[in-house]
Design a protein around this nucleic acid. Structure first.
Length: 794
DNA sequence: CTATTCTATATATCA
DNA sequence: TATAGAATAG
C-alpha cells in the first residue's frame, strides 16, 4: 500500500480564479517530485499498463480489452499525476459515464494516494461536470444559475405542449418521436440553427426544426435544460466566449476519459475544445464493447482517435486477467467476425478451464427451468450465488426466469430497472418540493395538481393554462387569480384554493423547518402518502419505502435548494447489497461487471441479434449486437453457459425460433453441446404446457445452428474446420440467408400443401424458401416457420 | 370528474 | 401477455 502523500491541495483552491496558474512547474513542486517515494503504486502493473500510466504528455489512447485492468490504469494514472507533482487533484479532469463509475474511481484513487483524492473536484460524469460549468456561467447562455434539469418525462410533457401549441395533431406526430429526433440532434452537437437542411423537415411536414427552436425557447423561459443541453450549452458557451474556454483549457492540465467508445459527437466536441490547448488527453476504451450506438455513441470516435489527435500514442491492453482460456477464446473468435474494429487479441495465462456450454430448450419456460436447476446444482456444490449472473438481451426475458427463481426459492436481485429518481412516486414527491421551493415551476405543478385526485382534472388545468398564457404568468399565479373569480365550479375552486393555501404554508415553513421534516409534512398533508397507503397493489409498500428513503437521503443536504439541485444527477438507489443472491440483468447493465458463472439465455435469431437492431441499423446493428454477445461472454470468469429455446412467446404470441447466428460464430474447440435432460417435461407438472401438444418433441434439435453445433462436436477430434459465413458481404439480407441455407436439403414441402404445427395448428403453405416455410395458419395467421416444425397433413 | 373499458404497442440506458 | 393512454360510460 502506498503511504498517503502530503500534497499542497490542503490549500483551498481559489474558487473564482480559473486562470490561476498552477504551481506544479514551480521549484517546490519539482523538488517534491524528486523526493517522491519509488512510486510503489506502479508495482504490479504489467509493461503495457505501466506505459499507459507513464505516458502523461500528449494524446493517448488506451485500448483496453475486457478484463485487462482498465480501471486500474486510469486510477493509477491519476495517482501518478498527483504523486509526481505534475498536477494537483483539481487540475485533472476525469470524465466517466455513470456516477457509479465516478464514485468507484474516486475511491480507488483514494486507496492509492490517500484522502488527497477528495480534492478532485473535476472527477465526474459528463453531465455533472457540464452542470457545474453551466451554473458558473448560466447568464451567458440565457439561464439563471438555479436552472432546473428536466428528466425524461418532463421533457416529454414539454414537447407535447410545444407540438400542440403549433397546432399539430399529437397523435399523428407523437412527442416521443420528436424527443428522439431532438435527442439525436443534441447527441450530434447540433443546436436548432445547425440542423442540416435535409433533416429539419423530418417531423410533421417540415416542422421539425421549428419545433426544436420552440422547445429550446420554452426551456429558456422555464429556466430549464434537458440532459443534452448540459453538454450542448457548454459548447455554445465556449464557442461564443473564447476567453472562458481558455480559462478551462488552462484549468485542466490533464484530462482522462473512461469508456471512450461510448462518447457521442457532442461529448467528442466538448473534449476536443478542452484538449486543444494542452493536448494532454487520455482516452480509455474498447471498441469491442461499444454497445450504445442506439443512443448516439459513435464508435468512430475511438476508431478515429489518432486521426483526430495527431501524434497520439496508442497502447493496447490485451492481457486478460479475468477469464479462463476457453471463455476468452470463444469471445475473441466471435468478435473477430466484426469488420469495423481496431483489432485486439486477448490473451490469458490462465488455464483453459471449462468449455462454453450451449444448451437447447424446447421453449422459454423450459429454458428458465434448466437454468434454475443448474443454479441450484451449483449452489449445492457451494458455488456462491453472488457469483452467478443471468444476462438477458431484453428485460421482457426476465419475467419467466424470475418466476422460476421464485418458485424454487432461489434468492435473486434484478440489477438495473428504473432508476430511483425515475420512479413515479419519487418524481411526484420531488414535484411537490419543487413547487414549494419555486412556485413558478409549472411542470412540477402540473404534475401534482391532481395527484392524489382532488377533482382538478384536465378541464381545470386547461383553464389555468389559458389564463397563464394570456397573462404570461406561471400556473400557480394564474391559479391564485382564478380562485378569486367564479370561473370555476365551486368544487374544483375549493380544491384549488386549498392546494394553494397549503403550498403557501409549506413555503413559509420551509424557512424554519429542516428539509426532510418539511418533506415528510408535505407528503402527509397533501394526502400523497395516504394515496399509496390506500393502494393495495403489490408495489405500493415498496413505493412508500422509497419515499421514506427519499426523506432520509435529504438529511445529507444543507437545504432544500441544494438537495433539489443535486437530486436528479446524483441520486441512485443504494445498491450496496452484497448478500447471497443471483444477479439478473440485461447485457447492457452487465458491462463492467464480472462473475464466476454467467448464464446467457435467449440466443435466438430475432431476439439476439435483435431484429429491431438489424432492421434499423443493418450491418452496424448486427455488429453492435455481436459486441453485446462479446460483452456477455467476457463477464464470465470460469463458466459461460449459453441457452436457446425453440419456441418463445413474443408479445404474447408463440413463435418458433432458430438458434442465434452467434452460436455459429463460436469456435468449436471451445464449446460443448449439452443435451438437455431427456426426461424433461414428461408428465404435467413443471413441464411446458406444450409438451403434451408436441408430437415430435425432438424437433428442437433439427435447427441449423443446432445441427452445426453438433457437427462441430463430431469434428472436434479430427480438427476439421467448419464452414463459416465469412465470405459474405453486405447487410442483413445475407445474414438471413445464412440461416435458411445452412440446412443442406431443400424442403420437401410444396406450396399449397396442408401442414400441422404443434402450436399454430393447421395451415396452408404459402411459400417455400430453403428450409423456411411461410404458412398461413387457420387460427394463428401468417408465420414463417422452419419445416422441421410442421408435419405434412393429409 | 372519475371509473371503466378499450386499444395500441412492445430494445437496451445514462445522465 | 402486460401496460399505458385514450375513449367512453356513469
Amino acid at each position: 500500500m502506498v503511504a498517503p502523500m502530503n500534497q499542497p491541495e490542503s490549500r483551498p483552491e481559489p474558487q473564482d480564479d480559473l486562470t490561476h496558474e498552477p504551481a506544479s512547474g514551480s521549484l517546490s513542486a519539482r523538488a517534491r517530485a524528486a523526493v517522491a517515494p519509488q512510486s510503489p503504486y506502479l508495482a504490479g502493473l504489467n509493461p503495457e499498463q505501466r506505459a499507459a500510466v507513464e505516458a502523461t504528455e500528449g494524446p493517448v489512447l488506451v485500448l483496453a480489452g475486457a478484463g485487462t485492468g482498465k480501471t486500474r490504469v486510469l486510477t493509477t494514472r491519476i495517482a501518478h499525476l498527483i504523486a509526481t507533482g505534475k498536477a494537483r487533484p483539481f487540475d485533472i479532469l476525469a470524465v466517466t459515464f455513470t456516477n457509479k463509475a465516478a464514485r468507484e474511481m474516486r475511491e480507488r484513487v483514494a486507496a492509492l494516494i490517500g484522502p488527497v483524492a477528495e480534492g478532485m473536484q473535476w472527477l465526474g460524469t459528463f453531465h455533472s461536470i457540464g452542470t457545474k460549468i453551466l451554473r458558473r456561467h448560466a447568464e451567458l447562455v440565457g439561464l439563471r444559475s438555479d436552472f432546473t434539469i428536466l428528466g425524461t418525462d418532463d421533457q416529454l410533457r414539454l414537447m407535447k405542449q410545444v407540438i400542440e401549441a403549433e397546432g399539430i395533431d399529437e397523435k399523428r406526430w407523437p412527442a416521443r418521436q420528436l424527443a428522439s429526433l431532438i435527442d439525436g440532434w443534441k447527441n450530434r452537437g447540433l443546436g436548432p440553427a445547425q440542423i442540416p437542411a435535409g433533416e429539419a423537415g423530418a417531423f410533421a411536414q417540415g416542422k421539425g426544426g421549428k419545433l426544436y427552436t420552440a422547445y429550446q425557447d420554452r426551456l429558456k423561459v422555464l429556466n430549464a435544460v434537458d440532459f443534452g443541453d448540459l453538454l450542448l450549452e457548454c459548447l455554445r458557451l465556449w464557442r461564443e466566449h473564447p476567453d472562458i474556454l481558455q480559462q478551462y483549457q488552462n484549468r485542466f492540465r490533464y484530462m482522462l476519459v473512461d469508456e471512450y467508445q461510448d462518447t457521442n459527437v457532442a461529448q467528442y466536441l466538448w473534449l476536443r475544445l478542452l484538449a486543444q490547448a494542452r493536448k494532454n488527453l487520455c482516452c480509455v476504451g474498447d471498441d469491442d464493447q461499444s454497445i450504445y450506438g442506439w443512443r448516439g455513441a459513435e464508435v468512430d470516435n475511438i476508431l478515429r482517435f489518432d486521426h483526430d489527435f495527431p501524434g497520439a500514442t496508442v497502447i493496447r491492453l490485451e492481457r486478460n486477467y479475468r477469464s479462463t482460456g476457453h471463455i476468452l477464446a470463444a469471445a475473441s473468435f466471435l468478435i473477430a467476425k466484426n469488420q469495423g474494429r481496431l483489432g485486439k487479441t486477448l490473451r490469458t495465462e490462465d488455464e483453459p478451464g471449462e468449455k462454453v456450454t450451449i444448451t437447447g430448450a424446447w421453449d422459454s419456460e423450459d429454458e428458465a427451468r434448466l437454468i434454475c436447476e443448474e443454479i441450484e446444482a451449483l449452489h449445492a456444490k457451494r458455488h456462491p450465488l453472488s457469483e452467478i449472473a443471468i444476462l438477458v438481451r431484453i428485460s421482457a426475458q426476465m419475467r419467466e426466469i424470475e418466476e422460476r427463481l421464485v418458485t424454487l426459492g432461489v434468492p435473486y436481485r434484478v440489477i438495473g430497472g428504473p432508476r430511483f429518481y425515475e420512479r413515479a412516486e419519487i418524481r411526484d414527491a420531488l414535484a411537490y418540493l419543487r413547487v414549494v421551493n419555486q412556485p413558478a415551476d409549472d411542470l412540477a405543478f402540473e404534475r401534482i395538481v391532481n395527484v392524489p385526485k382532488r377533482g382538478l382534472g384536465d378541464a381545470t388545468v386547461q383553464v389555468l393554462h389559458n389564463h397563464a398564457r394570456a397573462a404570461r404568468v406561471p400556473l400557480t399565479e394564474a391559479a391564485r387569480f382564478i380562485v378569486e373569480t367564479d370561473e370555476l365550479k365551486p368544487k374544483p375552486r375549493g380544491a384549488l384554493r386549498d392546494l394553494l393555501i397549503s403550498f403557501g404554508r409549506w413555503a413559509k415553513l420551509s424557512e424554519t423547518m429542516t428539509q426532510s421534516d418539511l418533506a415528510q409534512m408535505v407528503l402527509e398533508e397533501s394526502g400523497y402518502t395516504d394515496m399509496w397507503q390506500k393502494d393495495k397493489s403489490a408495489d405500493a409498500a415498496g413505493r412508500l419505502e422509497n419515499l421514506k428513503e427519499l426523506v432520509r437521503s435529504m438529511e445529507e443536504f444543507p437545504d432544500l435548494q441544494s438537495f433539489l439541485e443535486h437530486v436528479s444527477l446524483v441520486m441512485e438507489a443504494n445498491e450496496t447489497d452484497t448478500s447471497e443472491r443471483v444477479s439478473l440483468m440485461t447485457l447492457h447493465a452487465a458491462k463492467g461487471l464480472e462473475f464466476n458463472t454467467v448464464f446467457l439465455p435467449g440466443w435466438e435469431e430475432g431476439l439476439f441479434p435483435n431484429q429491431r437492431a438489424l432492421d434499423e441499423s443493418g450491418r452496424a446493428g448486427l455488429e453492435e449486437e455481436r459486441r453485446l454477445a462479446h460483452v456477455g461472454l467476457t463477464r464470465a470468469r470460469r463458466m459461460a453457459k449459453i441457452y436457446f429455446a425453440s419456441n418463445r412467446r413474443i408479445h404474447g404470441l408463440w413463435n418458433s425460433t432458430v438458434p442465434s447466428r452467434f452460436i455459429d460464430d463460436l469456435p468449436e474447440a471451445s464449446v460443448e453441446i449439452v443435451e438437455a435432460p431427456a426426461n424433461f417435461s414428461q408428465g404435467g407438472f413443471g413441464g411446458s404446457r406444450f409438451d403434451r401438444m408436441a408430437p415430435f418433441s425432438g424437433s428442437s434439435y433439427q435447427t441449423p445452428g443446432w445441427q452445426r453445433a453438433q457437427a462441430h462436436r463430431a469434428q472436434t477430434e479430427s480438427g476439421s474446420t467448419f464452414a463459416r459465413g465469412g465470405e459474405r458481404r453486405g447487410p442483413m439480407l445475407i445474414e438471413g440467408e445464412l440461416v435458411a441455407k445452412s440446412t443442406g436439403a431443400a424442403s420437401t414441402f410444396a406450396v399449397g400443401g396442408r401442414v400441422l404445427h404443434s402450436k399454430f395448428g393447421p395451415g396452408t403453405v404459402e411459400a417455400v424458401d430453403g428450409n423456411k416455410l411461410t404458412v398461413e395458419f387457420d387460427k394463428a395467421g401468417r408465420k414463417m416457420v422452419l419445416d422441421s416444425f410442421v408435419e405434412r397433413l393429409g
